[in-house]
Design a protein around this nucleic acid. Structure first.
Lengths: 218, 218
DNA sequence: AAATATTTTTAGATTAGTCTAAAAATATTT
DNA sequence: AAATATTTTTAGACTAATCTAAAAATATTT
């Protein structure tokens, strides 16, 4: 049996290593999990014993195939629940993350497959992230971050990095949502802020916003 | 904060005391929770400290108003999720209990109130049990157990006591479901089995079945 | 009401996950 | 390549929930 805490560590390692392949170091996991390095060491030993991770002392950790399978399945569940909350229960995109963090740990294959069917097999969640299918397959869309977009080009908003409530509310209040068309007008070298044009307005966004907004060329 | 284990103990005490009012003894809780009496003693001390229960050594335990409020809220969540699973996700009534045992612990008031609305405020779950509303109110329906029904009378099936998969599958295979109309034909004094008439058949059910099926006179 | 049986509680140990503080290994600077 | 800084691990302790075995209280039988 896999515990809730083990699942959360596996998920954190997966996200930190962008798809579970790259080696992740102890402190990175500690800060992602809001815990101490010593706790992380204990846990990665345990994950290693259970064959979810490969670990050599002082050398960081990678997920095994088993570990990656677990991670992708949790992500599938998390994102399907997010779609459910937004489409069926009137949640806004900034409210779903916290509840989905809990729902993702409910263990029932039938539950999640029926939910998938009920939602008509969605392929993206409310933040623009792809939803793995039953076999764990999902496409990486070729997205770029606004901070690296080129002046003069037009893009579609396809996702966010930071899913915190404050950031998503900020986007809402500036009429930026998934699918919004954005034209990059000007990059200010002094503070790396960016002026962008939306359908009915022009706004200037800070560097920290520009680093968290994903776009796709149109 | 209330832990998952505390919630489960409170729920068990509530069910054992039929609405949280009657005193429940340690061994009864131990057998309901599949644990040892010594563990129960520890936990009811803790529930007592946190003001969810009133407890005097060797005298058993009752729930406080707070404890009852917690219990009813968990029951509300459990039964709403059961309706969701059956009506939206194609679960059969014998499959829902185990998954609902986990879903009932997800803590989000918005989630459960929106789920309630999405399901159009159901008042009974798939086993015929009433669903408490947001304020914790719910009606007890006047139901009798088949074992005590009178020969010659006609009843509607309104609920079950045992929600185990084996029992519910037995009912399914004999075409007994919520709403099924049943006429009591004969009670056999020798083994307390009962012959009943359904729409298209007559069957004999054992005493243990008769004790777990709830009816309402029509 | 004394003896016996049952129930409940206490005492002390165990496991999962966490922590602090110190030690060990690795990385960086000079 | 020594010295210093950073990262990681170890050692030992803590909490929540559990257990076993023994002691204490209550209930039942004779």
């Amino acid at each position: 049996m896999i515990t809730l805490t083990e699942e959360n560590y596996i998920k954190a390692i997966y996200h930190l290593s962008s798809n579970g392949e790259k080696t992740v170091n102890t402190n990175a996991i500690a800060s992602a999990m809001q815990t101490k390095a010593s706790s992380v060491t204990d846990m990665i030993k345990k994950l290693s014993e259970k064959n979810y991770a490969d670990y050599k002392k002082y050398q960081g950790v990678t997920l095994t195939d088993d570990g990656r399978r677990v991670a992708v399945n949790i992500i599938r569940k998390h994102r399907l629940w997010e779609v459910f909350l937004v489409e069926k229960l009137n949640f806004s995109w900034d409210e779903v993350h916290e509840v989905a963090e809990h729902l993702e740990h409910i263990k029932s294959e039938k539950l999640i497959d029926e939910l998938d069917a009920f939602l008509e097999f969605p392929t993206y969640d409310p933040h623009g992230d792809p939803i793995p299918d039953k076999e764990g397959n999902f496409k990486h869309i070729e997205k770029i971050v606004l901070a690296k977009a080129e002046v003069g080009s037009t893009y579609k908003c396809v996702g966010v990095d930071d899913t915190s409530s404050k950031f998503l509310k900020y986007l809402d209040s500036n009429n930026i949502a998934l699918g919004t068309i954005i034209t990059v007008k000007h990059k200010e070298p002094f503070d790396n802020s960016i002026k962008i044009a939306l359908e009915h307005s022009e706004i200037v966004v800070s560097q920290s916003v520009a680093k968290n907004l994903y776009l796709k060329k149109v």
